[in-house]
């Protein structure tokens, strides 16, 4: 079988238009092209409405796209339903409530993630060997959650829930990890901890990852590549040494350059 693409992720000419034909019509993705090599950890920045989260949602299949192609590790997933592409993806969301089932135990949540891409039948939901594995994984977080495996996830803090969601996302070795502003709803200290855990999980599992963030410092400090989006397009893409040497002021200058005056409003949000 020949592969369509040798990249971990290849996005070709992606279009998405919201509220088409209405007064609120918005071209959210205006021909996005992006190629990720295996092991790439890309941070994505851009102003409000630049299409960062929309790109991630398009990859995840939250709704159908209006044009283009999405290829993960050689498999074209453009037409697949959301739950059918889940085996390729690990996802962590902005709202800590979104990634876990609040009324279920920590171990039950993890067990659901551990069956991702498998047939779910009448076998017991959490086996003894599952439990041991989950305990080991939870220990690596250093949050003491390994002793609370039968607690309802709804009782945990936002940071704890994001940490568990990260574990769940990586549990089945996804082809691509999608982090959608997953620290934006947390206080700075917790956000830093969750970012640290993200780095740890990505490097330990050798994952290819995309992280949307509003925080330029984070975008520079994490990952090996940085992508800037504006009005539904990728307008800047740096990696390697060039990325390491970036400063927030460089990124701000870049923003000013592409957006002219209109960027002044976004500046405060991004700084």
């Amino acid at each position: 079988m020949s592969k369509d693409s040798q990249y971990a992720l290849e996005i070709r000419n992606l279009y998405k238009i919201f509220n088409r034909g209405t007064i609120n019509e918005k071209i959210a993705l205006n021909g996005v092209n992006l190629k990720l090599n295996p092991g790439d950890f890309v941070t994505i920045i851009g102003g409000n409405g630049a299409g960062k989260s929309t790109t991630l949602n398009a990859i995840a299949g939250v709704w159908p796209i209006d044009g283009g192609q999405i290829i993960i590790d050689g498999t074209d997933i453009t037409g697949l339903a959301e739950h059918k592409r889940a085996p390729y993806l690990g996802r962590v969301f902005q709202d800590p409530m979104t990634g876990t089932a609040a009324t279920m135990d920590i171990e039950e949540n993890m067990a659901i993630a551990y069956r991702r891409g498998q047939h779910r039948g009448l076998r017991w939901g959490v086996t003894r060997s599952d439990r041991e594995l989950f305990r080991e994984k939870l220990k690596t977080l250093g949050l003491g959650l390994e002793d609370r495996m039968t607690s309802k996830v709804g009782l945990l803090s936002g940071g704890q829930r994001q940490a568990i969601t990260l574990l769940m996302a990586a549990l089945k070795q996804p082809k691509l990890l999608l982090l959608d502003e997953h620290t934006a709803a947390l206080d700075p200290k917790t956000a830093a901890k969750v970012l640290e855990i993200s780095d740890q999980i990505i490097s330990e599992n050798h994952l290819t990852a995309m992280m949307v963030t509003h925080n330029m410092k984070d975008a520079i400090a994490h990952g090996n590549r940085l992508v800037m989006m504006h009005e539904g397009k990728v307008i800047y893409d740096v990696s390697g040494e060039e990325k390491k040497n970036l400063h927030v002021k460089d990124l701000l200058a870049k923003f000013e350059e592409v957006s002219g005056g209109e960027f002044a409003n976004d500046r405060m949000i991004l700084a």
Binding site: P87, L89, T100, A101, A111, R120, R123, W124
Partner: peptide, 21 residues
């Protein structure tokens, strides 16, 4: 069971359920 967990997850958080396949 696994399928029972899937029912509970779907009722509690359908977004999470779909993200987990």
């Amino acid at each position: 069971t696994e399928i029972g967990h899937a029912i509970r997850a779907t009722g509690c958080n359908p977004n999470m359920a779909r993200a987990q396949g």
